[in-house]
Design a protein around this nucleic acid. Structure first.
Lengths: 124, 124
DNA sequence: TGACACCTATGACAGATGTCATATATTAGT
DNA sequence: ACTAATATATGACATCTGTCATAGGTGTCA
């Protein structure tokens, strides 16, 4: 298997990448507008973050008119998996159960939500 | 309520803090020895990380003989909660369900483990 | 075709990070 | 009291981060 080893994303980058994912593709402006209201940074800052994400291998872009349209260069699933397993690694030495427990008790997740999780792990 | 607002931990710090927690208290040397084998940094590096964690309010220390013994200065539960909710915020806009799903399908967690999570959220 | 609106490029900058080499202090022996 | 072993203190340094101001390119429409 090809372990790509993209440089890790910084916190700010980790916040911006999902905003691109959620529309498959997005211009700087769209991402800028999609920012939560409590997070005010300038358009230029977003442009920088997207550029850096591209340098790191998470995004790619092509021009459309005068603007750049950014889209994923790495599979969302993989990026998320990596991000989470890195956290689990650091915080819990690699054991994901404590994280599940934590979520179950501090995230307002219902037993119904939990019930629905069963069976997801079945490897095809 | 008192929102302490400790500066966020860096990735390296996030990896080292749990090593102190796991023995309640620990010297630089103990933490250094507790490092996973794939993670080789010098003793001095660990000392720096522990000192910075103290500056940020996560640890405190007292001397024992010639060595410093570091112990928690913030509740582990709170630190973990903050760390996780920050990630959920960034990656999933605050919704923890996708994270649960991800863990359920990619972490080798069994349906039994999942079953055991039920009821944890019930506030007394 | 000019002016405007809207983009990206450049690069700047302070502060955070990850890692150490060294200098200095302290303690337990002998 | 000296010394070897072991600690912390200093501070250095290349990168990375988060943020932006500003310069320069380009499409659009009157």
């Amino acid at each position: 298997m090809a372990r790509s080893k993209r440089p890790a994303m910084s916190p700010a980058e980790t916040e911006v990448l999902p905003l691109v994912w959620q529309s498959q593709e997005a211009t700087v402006q769209q991402v800028h507008e999609a920012l939560p209201s409590n997070r005010k940074v300038t358009y230029v800052t977003i442009a920088t973050l997207l550029r850096r994400l591209e340098e790191k291998g998470y995004l790619r872009h092509h021009a459309r008119g005068k603007a750049f349209v950014y889209g994923p260069a790495a599979k969302k699933e993989d990026v998320i998996r990596r991000t989470i397993s890195d956290l689990v690694e650091r915080l819990f030495g690699g054991n994901p159960v404590p994280l599940m427990q934590h979520l179950a008790q501090h995230s307002g997740i219902s037993d119904e939500d939990i019930e629905r999780l069963k069976g997801l792990g079945k490897k095809k």
